[in-house]
Design a protein around this nucleic acid. Structure first.
Lengths: 205, 205
DNA sequence: CGCAGAATTGAATATTTTCAAGTGGTGTGG
DNA sequence: CCACACCACTTGAAAATATTCAATTCTGCG
């Protein structure tokens, strides 16, 4: 169990990949290419379980967006032990499949969506993960900066800012201060997300 | 066990995601957004095991690039049974973690690399997966079309073509016909891939 | 209240896409 | 075995989207 203050990073040393459980807080998983070239692979919230790769062609780190508490296991040790515990193994597999599905959705977004579509997808994902009802509308506090968002979406902070401005001007979202977001017209957001037309998505939750 | 002729697709019906084993051939895993907007999520070769998501915001399908034989399991059925077999579960977990690592590398490429860097990464990956030695150099036959490559890298076929031409003109690669590639200067390719400078990559294989 | 960093806005630039035309490989039929 | 035709690929020029650079405004915090 390790504690991370805001912006503190947990760098994965050489050797094996790690399994992380977010006991408290919000984190980003970052791949480091060079100074000033980082890619955010995922944001993680309380209760999330995920794996951090061992260094390969990139260096990975987990960075706290606010105060966070993490439980970390060196993966191999853990797995060897868990092999005798099918329940734990199964749980880990389910979480890995979830991470994979999210990673693939990110590939789709970064590979074939415009800036506007990426922002729409991002906001819908955040709504799903940390949104709460407020006057019959979905609202949330973005725990990450514009830079984090841009590094997650493969855009610049300027482009992110311009797209948010556009969404606000079009009455799709409302923003309060730097981080509060209210989805005024979620159906428009969904239209702008560029999802498959023959989609079978189940909204709800 | 199902057989797929070239370009035949295995569409995942509603319900649960599938586990696929490639017994023979080469396939691409495609996310379908709309007519003429597809994203290739991964290429799979003989012996690969991977999961195909159930339809969500997109429709997924497995398409054979040449004659292929696949073994498919509806995931839930299989997992319920496998829960009593830690070895199988562990094997599946390892494969899913591998898929996740590759998917994340793709996110890095699509999120923060130029067209030139993406092509370099792509060629290095192909070399690693299907490359064979030939006169002391690494060579391989690309089993996919330029369109497949472009849809995998989030570029247009024209950009892919131009980048390959540039690599050829610069003496980094040699091409024979439409599909044969020889890596003349793999070290240059690695430089152009934009990997982390403090990389700990182990080449070999 | 004022400051410092974050975010926004604007204009110029760059990379990639789009559209259009041309070339060449591969496979077929004579 | 060669000629031909089709389709994949290549190449070029114009257009679009996003980036870069620069200046300004906002916001949260001391």
């Amino acid at each position: 169990m390790s504690s991370l203050t805001r912006n503190a990073s947990f760098e994965v040393s050489e050797g094996d990949h790690q399994i992380i459980y977010v006991a408290c807080g919000v984190t980003k998983l970052v791949a480091h290419m060079s100074d000033s070239r980082d890619q955010v692979l995922a944001f993680h919230f309380v209760g999330d379980i995920f794996t951090v790769p061992a260094p390969d062609n990139y260096v990975y780190s987990v960075i706290a967006l606010r105060e966070a508490r993490l439980v970390t296991f060196p993966s191999d040790d853990y797995l060897t032990e868990a092999t005798t515990e099918p329940g734990i193994l199964r749980h880990l597999l389910d979480n890995t499949i979830l991470s994979l599905r999210r990673s693939r959705e990110k590939v789709i977004a970064l590979g074939s969506k415009t800036a506007a579509e990426r922002l729409a997808v991002f906001l819908l994902n955040m709504a799903e993960r940390i949104g709460t009802e407020r006057d019959g509308l979905c609202a949330f506090d973005l725990p990450m900066s514009r830079r984090d968002i841009s590094e997650s979406l493969g855009l610049t902070i300027e482009t992110v800012s311009r797209q948010l401005t556009k969404l606000r001007d079009d009455g799709v979202i409302e923003t309060i201060g730097r981080s509060k977001v209210i989805l005024r017209r979620p159906e428009l957001l969904r239209e702008r997300a560029g999802y498959s037309t023959r989609s079978c998505a189940i909204s709800s939750s």
